[in-house]
């Protein structure tokens, strides 16, 4: 079991448990407390407070860029330890995203914050929005127009499903993100290199931010005719074309079980297997 199922699943997969999407709409402010007027993201955000050395990803990357791999590995190791206690995200294949959407929580399509920060993308309408906010908190999005730059659009279950399918076709994998301790607040459509969690995991080994899916995919070589339709869909360096066999090939240790290759295969040659039932992969999250 992945750590989120352990603590939040209640015996089941955590993201299929409706409890993890439930949230209140209102809270009373404690006497004398005012709403926040501005959130700081000052030019010096991330700089170490006086007399302390910070050890986050910026410092790790700086060390690596300067050729100091020992420091890099140490910081990443520490970060992974700390992250085990923190919320994270998990890769979720399309068919389970559909199940999640059937629960009927408020869903609103919005701009992707990773893409905003890495590529200065501006997504301004529902045909461009590539991320989705979940839960009653979305009713208050107007508090922070910069956070939801480009606005949001609430979707019905049917529209939301079509919207996810659209991004799936385009080649984006899906993940569910925790926000705060026990609340799933985001459904993202992600790709490398725009997506922070994917990138941090693949490039820097921060494995706790993004957990692999409950599944792993295998190619049935009887059915695969080597057409190559699945190639180019994988964001995790798991899917290759094996030239000598003329078949697609999945590296089961690299596979995150996102199912993008599965949804692309016209011959149903790729199928999901439960990661937990494969002894050597059951602990590979």
């Amino acid at each position: 079991m992945c750590r989120m199922c352990d603590s939040l699943g209640g015996g089941d997969t955590w993201y299929l448990n409706p409890k993890n999407y439930s949230n209140r709409m209102y809270k009373l402010r404690e006497p004398g407390k005012r709403p926040t007027e501005a959130l700081g993201n000052s030019p010096n955000a991330g700089a170490a407070p006086q007399g302390q050395t910070r050890s986050g990803l910026p410092e790790a990357i700086e060390a690596k860029a300067n050729g100091d791999l020992d420091t890099f590995n140490k910081i990443i190791g520490d970060m992974n330890q700390r992250a085990l206690m923190r919320p994270g995200g998990q890769v979720v294949p399309l068919h389970e995203v559909m199940e999640v959407l059937d629960m009927g929580m408020p869903v609103a399509a919005m701009m992707c914050i990773c893409r905003k920060n890495t590529r200065a993308c501006e997504e301004c309408s529902v045909s461009e929005y590539s991320c989705m906010g979940l839960g009653t908190g979305m009713f208050k999005w107007e508090r922070w127009p910069e956070r939801y730059k480009g606005g949001v659009e609430f979707l019905s279950t049917k529209q939301a499903k079509e919207w996810v399918e659209y991004w799936d076709k385009k080649g984006m994998m899906h993940m569910l993100m925790q926000e705060g301790g026990d609340f799933i607040g985001g459904l993202c459509n992600c790709d490398y290199p725009d997506c922070g969690p994917i990138r941090h995991r693949i490039d820097y080994g921060l494995y706790a931010q993004l957990v692999k899916s409950e599944y792993v995919c295998f190619v049935d070589w009887e059915k695969c005719n080597g057409c190559g339709d699945c190639l180019g869909r994988c964001h995790y360096n798991a899917l290759k074309f094996e030239a000598t066999m003329e078949k697609a090939h999945i590296d089961q240790f690299n596979c995150f079980g996102c199912g993008l290759c599965e949804t692309a295969c016209p011959r149903d040659a790729i199928s999901y297997f439960d990661r937990k039932k494969i002894p050597g992969l059951a602990n590979v999250w």
Binding site: A38, N41, S42, A45, N117, T118, R119, A120, P145, R147
Partner: peptide, 30 residues
């Protein structure tokens, strides 16, 4: 004004850059 310009952000093959708002104000887009 990097968020308006964004040329380097979109030109880099490995997406090395990031762009961040320096202030986020309630009820107001930056």
């Amino acid at each position: 004004t990097p968020f308006a310009c964004k040329l380097c952000l979109q030109a880099c093959p490995t997406a090395v850059f990031g762009v961040f708002e320096t202030k986020m104000i309630r009820l107001e887009e930056t």
